[in-house]
Every structure is written in structure tokens, then in C-alpha cells.
């Protein structure tokens, strides 16, 4: 849930603001793209994204929740049948606000708020995945160093070996930078493995759970 707005409402009061935002949301889901002031666009974004989340859920209860805001059944139908399937792969960020400069009459900063209908591009998806992988490897590197330093103990569990194979290319690339550090840090880290692996060995049941390994 978005945090409650501080400061004055849009329009004349709370009810007026609800009406303004409901009308803006209705227009947004009808036309996909609307031009409004930056202040209104910023207030509309959390509401519109919450409604899209309801639409992705797609059941009758969600539809009734949306109908309390967007009163137009035709627009709600469009939201549930046309917009929601496009957002299926997207985890939030359903709208995009682009500033377009100031209005002539009152110099109000204007913006275009639009629904992000295009599918998640493969390139961006791989980039996000790679970033997640590097984050994971950064975490596993701390844990992964310690078993590497103490292979002689033969205490490396199969789960950890699996994780290492999964992240092999990334760990390898990270390892290319790491060895110099490793050689110096290995001695320091020797004290750690016993403690770190002790934690891992306590729950060897979580074989498939990668996250538990990274955290351990």
C-alpha cells in the first residue's frame, strides 16, 4: 500500500480528491495515456497501479473492488480483459510518467501518464536477471569462499556444491578477480568456515532451496 499523502488534498477536500483521482483513473484505463499536471499524475500513479494489481487477480471480488473506484463497467471490462493480460509478466511499474514542460496559461508543470503495455523486452529481462545473479553470487562469494578454503575438511554439503555449479560462470568471473584477495583472506577466513558450515549442516534437508544456502 502506498503511504498516505501528506499536505492538502487535490481539489476542495478529501471527497473532491477521490472524485478527481477516480475520473483520472477512468480516463487512463480508457485511453492508455493521459496528459495532466505533474502533481495529479504523481497522485494517480499509486491508485492506478493498485487497480491494475486487482485486475491481474481477475476474480469477481477484485472486480467489485475496482468498481468502487472506476464506476464505468465498460472501462473496468477493458482493464480486466485487455490491460491485465499485458501486465501479466510485469511485477509492478505498470504506469510511466514523463514530464513535458510547463503549461502556457498558468505555467503548471505538465506530465504524460501512460500504461506500460509493451511486453517486458528480452534484453531488459536478461539484464535484470544478470543483476540478480551477480547479487546472488556476491552473497554466495562470502559463503562460497569459506568452503573453498577448507576442502580438506570434506564438510562441503551437496547443496552447496549444487549452488556452486549453478553460479559457475559468474563465480568463475568473480573468482578471476578474487584469487588475489582469496590468497590473503583465506587465512583470515579459516576461522569462519567452521561456524558458517556448522549452520549449513544443521539443516541439510533444504536441498532445493537456494535462498537458504545463500543466507547460510
Amino acid at each position: 500500500m502506498p503511504t498516505p499523502t501528506k499536505g492538502p488534498r487535490l481539489g476542495g477536500g478529501p471527497a473532491h480528491e477521490r472524485l478527481i483521482l477516480a475520473n483520472l483513473a477512468t480516463s487512463l484505463f480508457e485511453h492508455d495515456q493521459i496528459t495532466t499536471t505533474t502533481a495529479k499524475a504523481k497522485r494517480l500513479r499509486p491508485l492506478a497501479e493498485r487497480l491494475v494489481t486487482f485486475a491481474k487477480r481477475g476474480d469477481l471480488h477484485a472486480r467489485r473492488r475496482v468498481l468502487t473506484v472506476v464506476r464505468d463497467k465498460g472501462v473496468v471490462h477493458r482493464l480486466f480483459t485487455e490491460i491485465a493480460p499485458d501486465m501479466a509478466d510485469r511485477q509492478g511499474g505498470y504506469t510511466r510518467i514523463t514530464k513535458i514542460g510547463n503549461r502556457k496559461g498558468d505555467n503548471a508543470p505538465m506530465a504524460v501518464i501512460e500504461l506500460v503495455r509493451e511486453p517486458l523486452s528480452a534484453k531488459k529481462a536478461t539484464v535484470a536477471e544478470a543483476e540478480a545473479a551477480t547479487k546472488r553470487s556476491a552473497k554466495t562469494k562470502k559463503v562460497g569462499k569459506s568452503p573453498a578454503a577448507s576442502k580438506s575438511e570434506a564438510a562441503v554439503s551437496t547443496t552447496e556444491a549444487d549452488a556452486a555449479v549453478d553460479d559457475a560462470p559468474i563465480v568463475g568471473s568473480a573468482g578471476s578477480e578474487a584469487p588475489l584477495v582469496d590468497a590473503t583472506e583465506a587465512e583470515v577466513l579459516v576461522a569462519d568456515p567452521a561456524g558458517a558450515e556448522g549452520v549449513v549442516l544443521q539443516d541439510p534437508d533444504d536441498e532445493a532451496d537456494d535462498t537458504s544456502n545463500t543466507k547460510a
Binding site: 496528459t35 514523463t98 514530464k99 513535458i100 514542460g101 502556457k104 505538465m110 504524460v112
Partner: peptide, 28 residues
Amino acid sequence: KQPHIACPSCGTYAGRHYDVAERSEHQG
């Protein structure tokens, strides 16, 4: 153009085009 705002002469921002962002002499 001003940073973080769509270009007033060609109306593009981050590779996307917005007609409403374009400004002529009269629009100021």
C-alpha cells in the same frame, strides 16, 4: 532542452515520442 523533461522541439524522451510535448512559437 531541460533535463528529465521531454524535448520541446522534437517531443522525444528516452526514445519515446510525445506529441503533447512539442512546442511551437505560439504555444511558447
